[in-house]
Design a protein around this nucleic acid. Structure first.
Lengths: 350, 350
DNA sequence: CCAGTGTCCAAAAGCGTTTTAGGGATCGTT
DNA sequence: AACGATCCCTAAAACGCTTTTGGACACTGG
């Protein structure tokens, strides 16, 4: 393997200055077409196909890359259909703009792990409920910008959905149908404690923006209906997976006073719940109403099709990417999310 | 916003050399623990959290990044379940090794488009049926390594599956059941011509490794059974999507001499085909046997569940990533793929 | 013929880091 | 008391590029 060629090598070998070679590749208007063609084609023949990125990034500070920081490891994040559509949305903008996207190792749940945030990235899209202000400070310290998705960090522009209002609507829908016994299947509120007992204290300490918003939305509807909060059974699922929900659901559904309606913070949780109900011989929606969140594809194909809240993952990704590449000071945006009524909800039996 | 801090700033401000600061972050054994702690904590206080990647990459030539080149745009590639599991596999290794993965803009189908291959990437994983030797030369010219997935390029280590043998088995399965009238739903053999007429000529000119292998596998089984190739109806689908297959299938299934069995190069094509059959009132498997390829999740949930060839997308991704980060000269690997018989195949009616 | 106006190209200064080669102390050994 | 070994640290070069500054040259118009 021969030594790697550089701009300077080409310049010397052609008897022109490095400036001129650089211009030939980057600023065609700076030299005559004839010379430019000559340089580019000679360079190709020699085995040089353009300036190396490393040098350019160091010099210009721009890398044409969007970095994506997720709260989970990526091998896990890619299992979440919503996360995948989000990435698709980001990718669509990157494709259009000819930018690259860089997936950074997940942050994990421990504050101690600091991954390599020193990546060469123009803008980070942060989608992590576990990110701390301190971490963000590091990101910004290296000169990158950052957009926050589904979360809230002081000073960062945000892309969110109307979590709270939609959650409120979901609960209201069940109340309107006449339900009185409720349970909520929640995400893990706290990164470290992994029990599934809910407490107001935990809610206050939680940094999981989405979970907080949705919970507050649900609870505000119950409050308006004058249902005391102690009467609502709230359980956390360790992960956003059907399996995690399945386990927790068995517990909920075998209680002596079983709820007649359950609100789930995601469709994946709802589907795990329905699997548990099915296992126990509990009919959805006849014996139990279920509402999901997200409206992933599986929500339409499961039986019964899931009443849920539709959120636009793809558009969220697009929007985040647009903010990321925009030159202007980006502004925060809240996307709408709406209740989609299918067959998993029904008034309770008398 | 203040000026970005550098190693040198920290060194000056602490009264030590830049070497020492660099060592404090990268080679703890090169200085006393006391000094190291002092340097790191002072640096953090000043707002410096570690050496910038841009400088390091330029200096060391290593970026701890795996680049992924796909044949399609990423917004499209992410819609393919198999591609997603592949990415998951790659991601699992990256997570473990704390590396980043970089998704590069797709190559597209035209030879003229040369995307930004000058990315700062240690190793490229190339998964593109449209990549040319010339393109690879460029990649290697910038000093990166490359692993080829599902394809063949001289000089590159490869990760493939047993496309040909499994395709042969699939066709053999139908022959054993007594079928005599066949069709094949193929990928587009050629990047530019977009008609769906097959010809041997096109097969010979094709660079679409996977399509060629599978086609040869199917045809070898027919040859062994002494079925003349002209008798096999071969149609290409412009994209690997259900919609593309749906259109082409309508055409095939309304022919006067309709095949009793159809081999599809992917499950997505097979599912589109079954949708068309359903639309035309043709029963699968009673009136028509269908075999897919890949064994994506939808193959188990569709009706009827699809007889198909299982391939290990996740493992393929893992393996490719392992080769990518390995220090040794990587060797090519072929993963097994096996026929999974479900309910979409059946002997033909007499 | 001369100033004015373009056009094209060269020299040089960094961008932030790592690493090589080596310089002083300090220590233990003879 | 001298000497080598050991430990901590530093100076300086190199990595490949872009961009600013300005010079050389060939044109124009007066």
């Amino acid at each position: 393997m021969t030594k790697k060629l550089t701009l300077k090598d080409i310049a010397k070998s052609l008897g022109v200055s490095t400036t001129t070679v650089s211009n030939a590749f980057n600023r065609p208007d700076q030299l005559s077409a004839k010379l430019r063609d000559h340089i580019v084609s000679s360079a190709n023949e020699l085995g040089y196909y353009g300036p190396s990125a490393a040098g350019r990034v160091l010099r210009t500070g721009r890398s044409n890359t969007i970095g994506i920081i997720n709260h989970a490891e990526f091998s896990y994040a890619l299992k979440d259909p919503l996360a995948v559509s989000f990435l698709q949305g980001v990718a669509s903008v990157c494709d259009r703009e000819n930018m690259s996207m860089m997936l950074l190792p997940g942050i994990g749940r421990s504050d101690k792990e600091f991954p390599a945030f020193d990546a060469m990235v123009d803008t980070f899209i942060i989608q992590s409920c576990f990110i701390t202000d301190d971490l963000v400070k590091r990101v910004l310290a290296q000169g990158s910008r950052a957009i926050m998705v589904d979360g809230k960090i002081d000073g960062l522009a945000r892309v969110t959905i109307s979590d709270k209002a939609s959650a409120h609507n979901a609960a209201k829908h069940l109340l309107d149908q006449g339900h009185e016994q409720f349970a909520i299947l929640s995400f893990q509120l706290n990164a470290t404690e992994r029990d599934n007992l809910f407490s107001l204290e935990k809610l206050n300490q939680s940094r999981h923006y989405v979970a907080i918003q949705r919970l507050e939305g649900y609870l505000s509807a119950f409050k308006a209906a004058e249902i005391p909060q102690q009467q609502i059974l709230i359980k956390e699922c360790a992960e956003n997976t059907g399996d995690a929900a399945y386990q927790v659901s068995l517990e909920i559904l075998t209680k002596k006073k079983r709820p007649t309606a359950i609100l789930c913070m995601s469709d994946r949780l709802a589907i795990g719940l329905m699997k548990a109900a099915n296992k126990l011989g509990i009919q959805v929606p006849d014996d139990l109403s279920v509402i999901g969140f997200d409206d992933i594809e599986a929500a339409t194909t499961c039986t019964p099709p899931l009443t849920t809240i539709e959120q636009l993952g793809y558009e969220k990704g697009q929007l985040a990417a647009e903010l990321a590449i925009s030159d202007e000071q980006p502004e925060s945006i809240e996307l709408p999310a709406k209740l989609v009524i299918r067959q998993s909800t029904k008034p309770p039996k008398k």
